Amino acid sequence: MHRLIVLMALWVTSIAYAAEQNIDPLVFRALDAAQTAQKQGDYTAARRALDAASGQPGSLEEALLWRTRGYLAWAEGQNGQAIELLEKVRKSGTLDAELQMAETLNLARLNLSEQRYPRVLSLLTPLHADADTHEEVLQMLVQAYQGLGQSVKALPLAERYVQANPQAADSWLQFLVAINADAKRYLAAERWQRQLLTRQPNNVQGWRQLAALQQLSGRHDKSLATLRAAYQKGLRFSESELDRLVLLAGAAEQPWQGAKLLAGMFEQGLLPRTHMREEQLGLLWWQARERQQAAQIYRELAARSGNAKHWLHLAQLELEQARWQAGLEALRHAERAGAERSKVRAWRNWAESEMSVEREKHVASAG
């Protein structure tokens, strides 16, 4: 619908401009007849009218006929032909500044629809310095950069637009959040996400997104505070949403932050303890090299479940801390619980070897 409105307006502009410039009457009548036919949806008649007229090379008449044929091709969905004709018009240099600008914008629209992103940039980049109030120019530039996989280059344009237009649509803020996050500029992304939340303070997904950004920036305390603030407002997250926040820390190679967040959720009552989540907490502490905390988790799990895997994990954690007797005791429990004997034997042999080395060092130092 927007395209049709634009095209109708341009037909009228062509006729009005032709009348003002006092062009050849034959060309004027051709333009007028083509407009009438186009309004009636008779594109064949419109082309016939245009084919009956011609302009001198380099003349305004020639440019207006090209222009009208270009918009007729656009109306028919022949965008490639429309681009070719409007490029010729733009290069002719026969139009005034206002119409020349219209051709530039419409060529950009057409090239964008055909995913010709470099041409969109070449057409619009000279304009964006004065485009603070021209939302569509900035939108097209942003789309072109995105199409080229260079979204970061669109950030200054989008930021300038939003700063100049405080009531800019939410989509602009969402774009700034997404691109800053993709570029690992989490603090900047968080700033824009907070602006979105001031507009939609009861949007649960917005709060979760803010917590996720804080988690990605390694600030588990801020993330937990955000979740707690949302709960105090009466907003509720699903367990799967909270679980994803913890997984996000693991994916971002931040196990310590993930462990702190999960432990905090347990303490705050935001997420119920389950066997699987406690295993996850133990694993996160282990990955973060916090073996004492990990051992405590697995010790409690093993005592409750009697699971061979839990006892074996506990044994490994104790032995990694040179707690030999505690490790060997856990291995005995693991073996009785049905752990794979080869694994138990391998860990026991390693522990006994390390203990032997320590005894020899002790004897040597005592002597």
Rank of each mutant, 00 (worst) to 15 (best):
Q195M: 08
A16I: 15
L123D: 01
Q35E: 14
L216A: 06
T104D: 09
W350Q: 14
H333A: 11
A181G: 06
Q143M: 10
Q215G: 09
A230D: 05
R191S: 14
R67S: 09
Q56I: 04
R191K: 14
L107N: 01
T198R: 13
M355I: 11
G338H: 07
T125E: 15
L64V: 02
Q174G: 03
E62S: 10
A337V: 01
E320W: 10
V204C: 04
F266H: 08
Q193I: 01
Q254P: 02
K91Q: 14
A294R: 03
E98R: 15
S342I: 11
A183Y: 02
N180Q: 05
E318F: 08
I15R: 08
G250R: 12
T104P: 04
E20L: 12
Y117S: 01
W74M: 08
L26H: 14
A263D: 14
T13G: 04
V27E: 00
I83L: 08
L328M: 11
A188Q: 14
H128C: 10
E114W: 09
W350I: 08
T36H: 10
G147E: 08
R219V: 05
Q38H: 12
A178G: 03
L7K: 07
R208H: 13
A351N: 04
E20H: 12
L65A: 03
H275Q: 15
Q200S: 11
E98C: 05
V357A: 15
A315K: 01
